[in-house]
C-alpha cells in the first residue's frame, strides 16, 4: 500500500490499518464558508484600520502645519506691534475713542473697521 502523494509506504499491519483510516475523519461542510467569511471580514477590518491610521496621521500633519503657520503669522504681527488689534475688543475700543472726538459712534466704528482691514492687509502682505 503506497501513499502516492507523499511516497509513504506502511511497513507493517498496524501502520497499514492506520494509513487506510486517514480519510475517515473529514472537515464539516460549514467550515469552508466560515473560514472564508471570517478571513474576508478580518481583511476588511484590517484595511479599515489602515485607512483610519492614515487619516489620523494626515490630521496630525495638518494640525502641525496649521499651528506652525499660525505661529508664523503671530510672529509677523508681533514684529509690527499689531498683535493687540486682532480682537473685536480693539475694534470697539478704537470706535469709542474716535466717537469721543467726533461725537458719532457709528462713523467711529466704520473708521476703526477700515483701519483694521488695512492693517490686516499689511500683515498678510508681510507674512506671505
Amino acid at each position: 500500500m503506497t501513499d502516492l502523494q507523499n511516497g509513504y509506504e506502511p511497513i507493517d499491519e498496524v501502520e497499514a490499518l492506520v494509513w487506510a483510516a486517514g480519510d475517515y475523519v473529514q472537515a464539516s461542510d460549514d467550515l469552508r464558508p466560515r473560514v472564508l467569511e471570517t478571513a474576508r471580514m478580518q481583511c476588511r477590518e484590517q484595511r479599515a484600520r489602515f485607512y483610519l491610521r492614515q487619516a489620523a496621521v494626515l490630521v496630525a500633519l495638518l494640525a502641525v502645519f496649521t499651528t506652525t503657520s499660525s505661529d508664523r503669522m503671530d510672529k509677523a504681527a508681533g514684529q509690527q506691534g499689531l498683535v493687540a488689534w486682532t480682537g473685536s475688543d480693539w475694534l470697539f475700543a478704537r470706535a469709542q475713542m474716535k466717537a469721543t472726538w467726533d461725537g458719532d459712534y457709528g462713523s467711529g466704528l466704520v473708521d476703526a473697521f477700515t483701519e483694521l482691514r488695512s492693517r490686516q492687509a499689511e500683515v498678510l502682505r508681510l507674512t506671505w
Binding site: 472537515a27 464539516s28 467550515l31 466560515r34 473560514v35 471570517t38 478571513a39 474576508r40 478580518q42 481583511c43
Partner: peptide, 12 residues
C-alpha cells in the same frame, strides 16, 4: 476546526 480556522484566518 476552530484551530484550523484560526490558523487560516491568520494566514489570510
Amino acid at each position: 476546526e476552530d484551530a484550523v480556522q484560526a490558523a487560516l484566518v491568520r494566514v489570510a
